[in-house]
């Protein structure tokens, strides 16, 4: 069956990598200072990215699902673009916009704010590539809620916030969580935009994927150990996603 060829193509390299990593001294490599610093930066930045995305992306997704405002198709296009763009393009675009010589970056510079090569830049790069995944998922979740359910709550005297908190949130929690996990996983794996926009400095901007990439030049053991950790985290998160998709829906 040709399908098994594709499945093998996907599974064999990952299995080989895991086997190789675990047959080396996994623990010794993961306890190195660099690996630990990369792990810390990755966790902090991807969590911040997901946090900001939820705060800002949720109302946006709701508006996109419900309000037929002018320019909505344009906004939807803007949100979908980063999903298909190569990350290197994203990083270049971010530099040209928010870099020290960038259109917006020069203006920020006047206030003494410099973004490139900072941990903030890592969060921005991750948000650029990962937030669209959350907004898309949340938008679909909101759109699936029966409009009459909302109107009925509104007719009963709910404020916008109460409507969201008591009607929309329970019904869309699953979608929002799925979106948040997708966003988080993508942020955790972000490489191309980060290395261009934020650079690579241990303890400040070097995330796990960057450390893995540089590990090729240095110590393959560290790269293998970090890869294993990244794969394990992704497997757990994807399993949670699957569980969310398959347990009975709320509506």
């Amino acid at each position: 069956m040709p399908g098994s060829v594709l499945v093998s193509l996907l599974a064999v390299p990952l299995a080989a990598l895991l086997w190789r990593a675990l047959s080396q001294n996994f623990a010794a490599h993961i306890i190195t200072h660099s690996a630990f610093a990369a792990l810390r930066i990755s966790l902090v930045t991807s969590t911040l990215t997901t946090f900001f995305t939820i705060i800002i992306g949720t109302p946006l997704a709701y508006a996109l699902a419900r309000w037929p405002f002018r320019g909505r198709p344009l906004i939807e296009l803007i949100i979908d673009l980063p999903i298909v763009l190569p990350p290197a393009v994203a990083g270049l675009a971010l530099l040209i916009a928010f870099g020290r010589q960038g259109v917006f970056g020069m203006w920020l510079g006047a206030f003494g704010i410099t973004l490139p090569f900072t941990t903030t830049a890592v969060v921005i790069a991750q948000t650029f590539v990962a937030a669209p995944l959350y907004v898309r998922t949340a938008r679909v979740g909101f759109a699936a809620v029966d409009v009459q359910l909302e109107e009925s709550a509104y007719a009963e005297g709910a404020t916008q916030w109460q409507l969201f908190r008591h009607v929309m949130l329970p019904l869309t929690a699953r979608s929002l969580l799925s979106g948040a996990i997708l966003c988080w996983t993508r942020a955790l794996g972000e490489f191309g935009a980060t290395i261009l926009f934020a650079g690579n400095l241990e303890g400040r901007t070097q995330t796990m994927p960057l450390a893995i990439y540089l590990g090729f030049e240095r110590d393959l053991g560290v790269a293998l150990a970090l890869s294993t950790l990244l794969i394990a985290t992704s497997i757990v998160l994807l399993a949670v996603l699957r569980w969310l998709d398959h347990s009975t829906p709320d509506q």
Binding site: L95, I96, G99, R100, Q101, P116, F117, I195, L196, A198, G199, N200, L201, E202, T205, Q206, Y213, L214, E217
Partner: peptide
């Protein structure tokens, strides 16, 4: 003053060219 450990010289050239 080091802000980034680049993986190759081309990346360094790019960042200097862009004025970053």
């Amino acid at each position: 003053n080091l802000v980034s450990d680049e993986s190759n010289a081309k990346q360094i050239v790019a960042k200097v060219q862009l004025g970053e």
